[in-house]
């Protein structure tokens, strides 16, 4: 690969270059990082945030934001534990549709609409749980288990959602419309795209993905807690942004988001292995998010 190609590659895959660098540094300081068991751990830890972040990618590409995904994940996980997994997915979609209706037809800013849903979904999760965690049934627990030794299902699910996200973004009309709406909503409208209807679907998809993430989380823990996934929406947004998506819309890719989620998980895992105290971990993660966004902004200038 010539120098120019390397430069082009790193400028288009800044997050991937960062991930490789990060993994290398951690490996040097703590070789145990590279053990198969640890890498699988990282994969499983990435899964919940990544699935959520894939849904967030649709929303961000279309120029919006979804703050409700953490609450929706908890709500859907709880519904799944009390009834059955698929019912949890349905409620996730309902939460997404609520966001979509408020934004597309109520003309609310996405920030406000999804903030309201964040509160509603969290509240409902606590209400139906009666404030208690609930054990998940065998089907939901299976989602968080190993398919075979060394084959964790969450990791496979994450890859499946990754594939679906890539397909939707690049190979479907819905995906192409997301880029058009996020890039220039007025131009999209004047090209005959029913922007309101599309937004409805986009937020519904985000709700669906959040619910799936919530079920995987509940399955891994064997129980759904009303306070599960608190603050996960911020990790999901961070993953999308580290992955190179623009919060002003029109830009973003599935691979970017996957790498972004991996960066967060590798960082957490590495800091744990290096025995950095948890509070300092938070500081480091914040710095990394700022750096990633800054690099991206410099590159675009």
């Amino acid at each position: 690969m010539s120098t120019i190609n390397i430069r082009k590659f790193t400028s288009e895959n800044g997050a991937l270059a960062g991930l490789v660098l990060l993994a290398a540094v951690i490996t040097v300081m703590q070789p145990a990082f590279l053990s198969v068991q640890n890498l699988l751990n990282v994969g499983v830890q990435t899964a919940v945030i990544a699935i959520m972040a894939f849904g967030m990618t649709f929303v961000v590409v279309a120029g919006g934001i979804d703050l409700s995904v953490g609450s929706v994940a908890a709500f859907a996980g709880m519904v799944g534990a009390l009834t059955a997994g698929p019912v949890g997915l349905v409620f996730g979609v309902i939460c997404g549709l609520l966001n979509g209706v408020l934004i597309a037809y109520g003309k609310l800013p996405p920030f406000i609409a999804t903030l309201a849903t964040l509160s509603i979904a969290r509240g409902l999760a606590v209400v139906i749980a009666g404030g208690q965690p609930h054990e998940t049934d065998a089907a939901v627990t299976f989602l968080g288990s190993n398919l075979a030794p060394m084959v964790p299902l969450p990791l496979l699910l994450m890859l499946a959602f990754f594939g679906v996200t890539g397909l939707i973004l690049t190979r479907t009309n819905l995906g192409r419309r997301m880029y058009a709406i996020g890039g220039n909503e007025e131009a999209a409208k004047l090209s005959g795209i029913d922007v309101r209807k599309q937004k409805l679907w986009i937020y519904a998809l985000s709700g669906l993905f959040a619910a799936a993430a919530g079920l995987v989380l509940a399955g891994r823990l064997g129980s759904a807690g009303p306070q599960a996934a608190v603050g996960y929406e911020l990790d999901a947004i961070a993953a999308v942004v580290i992955g190179g998506a623009s919060l002003s819309g029109g830009v973003g890719r599935a691979t970017g988001t996957l790498v972004g989620a991996l960066v967060l998980a590798v960082l957490r895992n590495g800091l744990n292995l290096l025995q950095v105290p948890p509070f300092w971990q938070q500081v480091v993660i914040g710095v990394v998010i700022a750096l990633a966004a800054l690099l991206d902004s410099l590159r675009r200038r």
Binding site: N173, R176, R177, Y179, A180, G182, G183, N184, E186, A187, A188, L190, S191, G192, I193, S246, G249, G250, V251
Partner: peptide, 24 residues
Amino acid sequence: PEDRKGQGLVLTATVGQNLELATL
């Protein structure tokens, strides 16, 4: 439309993506 950049084009997209916008 009169405002090419504001209303006619999705500037973040490619030529091809803009061309097919009305015929997805």
